[in-house]
Design a protein around this nucleic acid. Sequence first.
RNA 1: GGCGCUAUCGUCUAGGGGACUAGGACGGGGCCCUCUCAAGGCCCAAACACGGGUUCGAAUCCCGUUAGCGCUACCA
Length: 480
Amino acid sequence: MVPRVRFAPSPTGFLHVGGARTALFNWLYARHTGGVLVLRIEDTDRERSTETHTQVILDGLGWLGISCDEGPFFQGAYGDRHRDDAERLLKEGKAYRCFCTREELDSQRARAEAGGQAFRYDGRCARLTADEVAGRTAAGEPSTIRFRVPDEELAWDDAVHGRITFQGRDLDDFVILRSDDTAIYNMAVVSDDIAMDITHVIRGDDHISNTPKQIALYRALGRPLPVFAHVPMILGTDGKKLSKRHGATAVGDYQEQGILPLAMRNFLALLGWSPGGDREIVPEDEMIRLFTLEGIQKKAAVFDPAKLEWMNGEYISALPAEELLEPVRRRLGQLGVGHEGRDLRPIIDAVKSRSRTILEMAERVAVRLDPSRSTPDAKGEALIKKMGAAFGANLRLVVQALGALSPDGWQAEPILGTLKALAEARGLKLGDVMQPVRVALTGSTVSEPVNELLAVVGRPRSLARLEEMAAPSHGESGAA
RNA sequence: GGCGCUAUCGUCUAGGGGACUAGGACGGGGCCCUCUCAAGGCCCAAACACGGGUUCGAAUCCCGUUAGCGCUACCA
């Protein structure tokens, strides 16, 4: 039998990194085993579910390269089956009608809590006679259906945690069908997982305490249990549950920040799962080959943006410029930087190994497209100030020397030869020639080798910018 | 409060009774390379929560303690 797994998000918010990772683990498991991944949108909370959120979730999964084999199915479409299952349990005496109102329950709960006691449903409606139930129903009194939790051991061998055991007596009889005839989460999930032949339930470990209830429902419905695998939560840097306070938590945020989907997926996979050994950058086929539920960590993991950025940088460096073209173009568009008729690839090659995000890379590309848009940063200003008159003077020497190069000769190698010869002839340290050029062209004291920078920027723009920056206002008179 | 889950460097982790002087990666620090940075190379600081067992031997198995987290709804 092929494994059938599912990812079942509620469209009540954006695709959270925790949800994305749960989806990823399901996907990896399906691909590893040759199984099927079903996508089920749990939209039964009409109040909070929106179509926009559904679309965002679908987009996020697509962006990460997580492909589903079946669905999306919408849980809201299966209300009749949920109700039928609940009523079947009622008919078989495994559940009962409860006429307690929400108000009564709430006040009982409040009273219990005020007294420092745990609230337990007292099961009063479980003791109603058939006549009483018929009478109150006929009188139009609203009621829910409550599941009679059996007093027995509710245990399973969790694929990541091992044996987990609950006792039925510790659980309240819980509502499975609301007074408006819609199913409560645990009922809907079990009904759907059964109907969809789900064999492995891989989900967040905040569902561990729902599992005994669901197991009881499976038993009552006479169906075999799936394998449960509860994956740990993802925490913020402060060790608290990841939330808005931690900044970016939705996968869309990372897309915005210039993170590549492959890097995001690699990073997420290694958060709570390890292929064993010392592997960090794991290509897709390897990831699929090595993935096992047993390799999943039991402990919650802290989401470390610094490591994500490092990994993203690794992916950027390894990718050919060709594949970086699209994201960079998109970002340049956002920045309002035109690049018609320019070949971006050599520029991307020049900056990619020094960039950790697409955003960083696009900004550097923009400056190389048009150096006049650069402004000296703090270190750049410091260099200008420190060199004083020599800054402009050396730039003028450079302009003079490089001006002798023909447009055809404007290549990295001849440029380097020219600059070295200049330094030697004038008795200057190479750095005193190179650094002013670097600052003039990029505003920064950090870049690819200066000769490559000049080659990438091109002859006319380079010479124009160097002359501009050689003007007295940038040199001897100090910063403006 | 009850029930449950978890516990190795700051962070992600390797580790399944002896190969542990506890390994790798991110981040931090230093050196080399060098026109700067990145990369690369070399090096440094940094952890088995605590207490009891079991065993010839425990990071690893058991029990407690502590701490963190989750659930305890006519939410999902």
